[in-house]
Design a protein around this nucleic acid. Structure first.
Lengths: 133, 133
DNA sequence: GTAAGTAGGCACCTTGTGGTAACTAGAAGA
DNA sequence: TCTTCTAGTTACCACAAGGTGCCTACTTAC
């Protein structure tokens, strides 16, 4: 991935960043907006680690989310082609969600963020402890 | 970075994802929340590519942002140790902002997102064109 | 007759967030 | 004396986003 680039090259980001910036016109903004809301990364992680899940199964693993928001998040992820929706009109209906190829492509990036986030948190904790003693 | 891991290992993400998820208690959530708001990645990108900048210089490069929001974004980034603030109490005052080491560490991740985002957008554009023809 | 179970839809309320405009300090310059 | 410059701060407004509760459709089971 991009990490193979020599570290002294200027960061590229998206072309929209070249001129006066207007939020919402940038591919990066689109991806960040997708990932950002609460729950979203957790949904992707669930589908990544546990495979396809039904609506109720996802909800059971996120007790605090409301149906409305879960539905909305899944619709957004579906619209972005990150998850696929499989609807079976049985009684009662069965709807299962799975990551698409594009969804799996996020794995590397998410892991990168996770690694950094955990390292920073560990550093902060260590600093706090040292400061408290 | 994390991309060196074999691709068949389960994604790790953060420990908070192991049990019932509560947003806001997760190091990943913290980082995403930081990056997410409008303008934020653009500010980081500016400081990355153009070096330390004064408040007015940043604002001049983002004509649509308000002082209030720029101040708030910079305060958040400063609180997260991503940018450092250098205040000189001259008249009129001079305040310059620069990326910290931690700020530069984001470069890889942001570039990863940027690469994916641009690839997806290109794919989508190609698909749209083909569909339209 | 009615409750349970699934996957939401819909209306309403509340909170957070961003935006706008006015205002500040203190010295320099006209 | 009055304006200008910098880097904000403050008060206020508006909209979007999240949350809550209630409702549906259809069948099976009690």
């Amino acid at each position: 991935m991009a990490q193979d680039q020599p570290q002294d090259q200027p960061i590229a980001l998206s072309d929209c960043h070249e001129a006066g910036h207007v939020p919402g016109q940038c591919p990066m903004d689109a991806v960040l907006k997708l990932l950002m809301g609460p729950w979203t990364t957790y949904i992707v992680w669930l589908l990544e680690t546990q495979g396809p899940l039904r609506f109720g199964e996802i909800k059971a693993r996120m007790p605090a989310i409301s149906s409305k928001v879960l539905t909305e998040r899944l619709r957004h992820l579906e619209a972005a082609n990150l998850v696929s929706r499989d609807y079976r009109p049985t009684i009662p209906p069965q709807v299962s969600y799975a990551l698409t190829t594009r969804g799996h492509e996020l794995k590397g990036v998410l892991n990168g963020i996770s690694v950094i986030a955990q390292r920073w948190q560990a550093e902060d904790n260590a600093a706090t402890q040292k400061h408290a003693s």
